[in-house]
Design a protein around this nucleic acid. Sequence first.
DNA 1: TCACATTTGTCCGTATGTATC
DNA 2: AGATACATACGGACAAATGTG
Lengths: 261, 261
Amino acid sequence: MPLDSIQFNPIKSKRAFEEVSNQIKKLIFEGVLKPGDRLPPETELAQQFNVGRQSIREALRILELSGLTATQKGGNGGSIIKDTISNTIGSLFLDACFLEKISIEELTVARIDIEKAVLVHAIKNADEADIESLQQNISDTKQKIEANINSIDENIQFHNLVAKASKNQFFVIVVEALTMAVRHFMSQIGPESQDSNNHERFNESILKSKNTLSYHTDILAAIIAKNQPGAVDLIETHLLEVKERLEVFADQPHTVGPDRV
Amino acid sequence: MPLDSIQFNPIKSKRAFEEVSNQIKKLIFEGVLKPGDRLPPETELAQQFNVGRQSIREALRILELSGLTATQKGGNGGSIIKDTISNTIGSLFLDACFLEKISIEELTVARIDIEKAVLVHAIKNADEADIESLQQNISDTKQKIEANINSIDENIQFHNLVAKASKNQFFVIVVEALTMAVRHFMSQIGPESQDSNNHERFNESILKSKNTLSYHTDILAAIIAKNQPGAVDLIETHLLEVKERLEVFADQPHTVGPDRV
DNA sequence: TCACATTTGTCCGTATGTATC
DNA sequence: AGATACATACGGACAAATGTG
């Protein structure tokens, strides 16, 4: 065997909290610790690992930020194993956007290609339950629009539901990251549109909501009819319109991201 | 304005370390703290924020895991602002794979669609420098194969370079996450193949490397010739082969992920 | 409603290891 | 080699929150 192909492990003087978080992480990956399980109290963990409580706490912060655990205060509280880490990835992704490594242009261009691919898989793999939740989403959106209520959450949710229908968890995570970023940029527009002193803008916002609803309705129909080319065309046109709507705000400085921990 | 459209901030008794990490994060996003800058020592930060060192340390762990800072110990050490957080996303993503939320099947299926889209953009946007680094990658791979050295790093790098050529940072991050996962599953095959007691497997591995190199060479040629349909066909066939190579190991239990902090 | 126990959140003092000069 | 600066780590103490009897 050639010597060069041996991989040496970098010598990294492990810090105590790293060792602790890795050991707990390993237990979670191995399934020893399952979602819903509660970790022992910090003081007890400190005794078991034979380290100070400070190291335990830093390890818990890592697990918490990784999306593996959640922390509750008070009696019967503690660190609880969570069951999903997808929104954690979305948050980190939003951070990347803020560091201006990703422009709105790049974001929306990529979104079109990815959601087109996702839609193809959704048409292939969607089951009854998926169709039902998509229909529910549409009717929820309708109600909100009729009541003049902002429907941005439902609009975002539609895309996430389509990703779920693809039965591919990778797509679910990627689309969630995309929509989380889109949602943030949208929310920078939203509050202004609802300014009661500016009826024109508010009406404009309602019009756009109806437009979006119309596209979503047609896309769902195409999914049900398994009309792949039609669906792909629809989502491309739809996302191109969203893209243009967002690009107006591309050069505006954006605020800091949401809290994650 | 409809009452329902008001967004209430969830009352979450902010913990001190959250406040600290958010404030520092904000400074980084705003560009006040730039890559390479050093944060004040922990004791000084504690004084400035008027909190204990423990809270500062937990905040620093959060920033470190988020990929925003790196920590050096010893004299002249401290927390330094980093310039990229992409590999952090890749690591978190690998965690998601380990939680078996994502199967190799899902991973590779998604990879094919995404890399096809990326390739289209790469053909459109690749400049001289991109072509050059891809050519360099090919020649590096050739040399390693001729010297019977494992070329998995170069093979992975090829795909990352194509993503970079697309000039879309979102694609760069997603492809890096994908290849990081693929690389991990590959490395579970690698060590066995290099077992000096198993020449057959080793030769098989060399054959596969040559096959991969051949595909990469053809894909690069198609990029240069701006032959979009040809390139897309090539990468689809190539990734399908990789997919089948990986699927053999799909049912094997995999080991725990790499350390991130 | 009112304690009470549990557990996280926080601060402080001190000691040690490590890298730089 | 020694001094300095810094992260790392431990232990003790108290405050705050939360569920239970």
